[in-house]
């Protein structure tokens, strides 16, 4: 198990370096005149040149890349070109918002997809057909639209949850929970739809297996049979789908944060990339890839725990 984990961590780190390097190259290929953007349209050529030198943009790309990666490895992601704030501070301030909706979204997604998927597989009939239909609808609807509808019903009409804004966990737990409920659900619905289908499919396959029939004939309770034996064997493919869905959640966070007026990583990545704030974009990318790698690592661990074969 240890060497399995070490290999996973190693490939995760390599992935971060590769993606960050790729981003660096891409950002330098857009041809945005960032120094002009920062200095403003009315700035003179000298002011723009001075800004350019201040940001080190007059240095060769290779030098800048080596500088950046050198400090990044030591945990220094530089400072925003626009606000001058350290990138790690900015990300640190926004990360709780995005992590709240992502992780709660993932949790909600896991629980509901298992319940729905198992129900569809076991009950069959109209329950199964309804789940299949809903899953297709849920998968087809963009999270943006779901977010708008949820906000219109639960925030504007019923006023159960706030329409915009984020309450910090430290400030009030119930406030926090309320402020992230709608965004987390908006994010999770697509993931639930996809994963529930997978759970249903693999549950049906597993339930047909001989060992299930054997266990049943030995008088095991239905609950123990379903959740201790069948689900454990049906889970790995669902986990794979879920970990892929998580990457989709990160992308979905950009629009969902906007609709709910949240200032998290999604909004940050959008505003910093359109303004060309390179240190911030690179910092966000590194952190997001790190999170995706971590979540996938956890999935892999769970996978290994469920299925000893992959540990080798």
């Amino acid at each position: 198990m240890l060497s399995f984990l070490l290999r996973r961590i190693g490939s995760g780190l390599a992935l971060i370096v590769v993606i960050a390097s790729l981003m660096f190259v891409l950002m330098n290929m857009t041809g945005q005149n960032v120094a002009r953007n920062i200095a403003g349209q009315t700035a003179s050529e000298e002011q723009v040149a001075a800004k350019s030198a201040e940001l080190g943009l007059d240095q060769p790309v290779v030098t800048r890349y080596l500088d950046w990666i050198g400090s990044a490895i030591q945990g220094d992601l530089g400072s925003s070109w626009f606000t001058g704030q350290p990138v790690t501070d900015t990300i640190g301030a926004k990360l709780p918002v995005t992590l709240s909706i992502l992780l709660v979204g993932l949790l909600v997604g896991t629980i509901f997809s298992v319940i729905i998927g198992v129900a569809a597989a076991v009950k069959g009939g109209w329950v199964d057909r309804a789940v299949q239909l809903l899953a297709i609808i849920g998968f087809a609807l963009p999270s943006f639209l779901i977010a708008l509808v949820l906000a219109a019903i639960f925030a504007v009409k019923l006023q159960i949850f706030p329409a915009v804004g984020y309450v910090e966990l430290a400030e009030s737990f119930s406030g926090w929970a309320k402020s992230i409920t709608l965004p987390a659900i908006a994010l999770a619905i697509g993931a639930i739809a996809a994963t529930a289908q997978q759970v249903r499919g693999s549950m049906i396959d597993v339930l047909k297996m001989d060992y299930v029939r054997t266990l049943r004939s030995r008088g095991l309770s239905a609950r123990s049979l379903l959740f201790r034996h069948a689900l454990r064997n049906a889970a790995p493919p669902a986990l794979t789908v879920l970990s892929l869905q998580f990457i989709g959640l990160v992308g979905g966070a950009v629009v969902v944060e906007k609709v709910f007026g949240l200032y998290g990583i999604g909004t940050l990545v959008f505003s910093s990339s359109s303004s060309g704030d390179q240190p911030l974009v690179l910092g966000v990318v590194v952190v997001m890839v790190l999170i995706i790698v971590l979540v996938n690592l956890l999935m892999d661990v769970a996978y290994g725990w469920l299925n000893p074969k992959v540990r080798v």
């Binding site: 925030a155 504007v156 329409a163 915009v164 804004g165 609709v259």
Partner: peptide, 19 residues
């Protein structure tokens, strides 16, 4: 002051009485 840069968010916040 709570900046809202998305017009849907502005609409929802006004109707929900948050701003």
């Amino acid at each position: 002051l709570t900046p809202l840069t998305d017009s849907n968010a502005v609409m929802n916040a006004l109707q929900a009485g948050q701003v």
